[in-house]
Design a protein around this nucleic acid. Structure first.
Length: 219
DNA sequence: ACCCAGGGTCATA
DNA sequence: TATGACCATGGG
């Protein structure tokens, strides 16, 4: 297996934090719901919203679609942007049902599935890739602001690359690796873990695997 | 009181 | 194509 800055980052983070076993959800559909709800939102708030949906028996596409949008919005209120996200959840559920739910969608090729997801209003690149990787186990790397930040700080990237460009760069680094899905799964999760559990609380991560490379905050 | 969080869309130039 | 406004709750 090739050694490059990305495989090294994966190794360093994995050794320090251990396997993350993402996505924190019960099944593919719940992954999809979480992917929409977590848009620009702290995960803790998403958990509350999902708990509300669960308690209301609304953690299924039919249930969500049968709910008045206003009622749906009320349930997901803790996750913020609740009016917009209620509409986005509905869009996603409609799309999901129209294409034969999980069984139907699983048969699509990754590229087609990605394009179709991006066609849903409210599903952008990152949300689509969350769903592809964590709900459909496709070898797609999720680029988020943390990834951009860390790679930029490590000097691996410029920082102003477009989403597609970055994604393909990351995926190329693991080209031919039969464990790509598993590695992409872990690396994205580890990057988020690293950002959440360590660097946000301290300017310099004491004992963190990125050491002095890891500087959060401005500049 | 301020800042940010596991983004995305839409209107404008 | 490239900015800017907007969406909104909750924790540090």
């Amino acid at each position: 297996m090739a050694s490059n800055p990305y495989t090294q980052l994966h190794r360093r983070l994995l050794q320090h934090y251990g396997p993350q076993q993402w996505w924190p959800a019960d099944g593919p559909f719940e992954v999809m719901v979480g992917a929409v709800l977590t848009q620009n939102t702290a995960w803790g708030n998403v958990e509350k919203a999902i708990a509300n949906l669960q308690a209301a028996g609304a953690l299924a596409p039919e249930a969500i679609l049968s709910l008045p949008e206003e009622a749906l919005a009320a349930l997901i209120r803790p996750s913020g942007y609740f009016n917009i996200k209620a509409r986005r959840l509905r869009n996603l559920c409609q799309w999901y049902q129209q294409h034969g739910a999980l069984a139907g969608l699983q048969q699509w090729e990754t590229t087609s599935l990605r394009q179709a997801l991006l066609g849903v209003n409210g599903v952008g690149p990152e949300t689509a890739d969350d769903i592809l990787l964590y709900a459909f186990a496709r070898p797609v790397f999720v680029i988020d602001s943390y990834t951009r930040r860390i790679l930029s700080r490590l000097g691996v990237i410029q920082g102003d690359e477009g989403y597609e460009s970055l994604r393909q760069q990351l995926e190329a680094a693991f080209e031919g690796d039969s464990q790509a899905v598993s590695i992409f799964n872990e690396l994205h999760a580890l990057i988020v873990m690293h950002a959440k559990e360590h660097c946000r609380k301290r300017p310099y991560c004491e004992g963190c695997p990125l050491r002095s490379d890891c500087v959060y905050g401005d500049q």
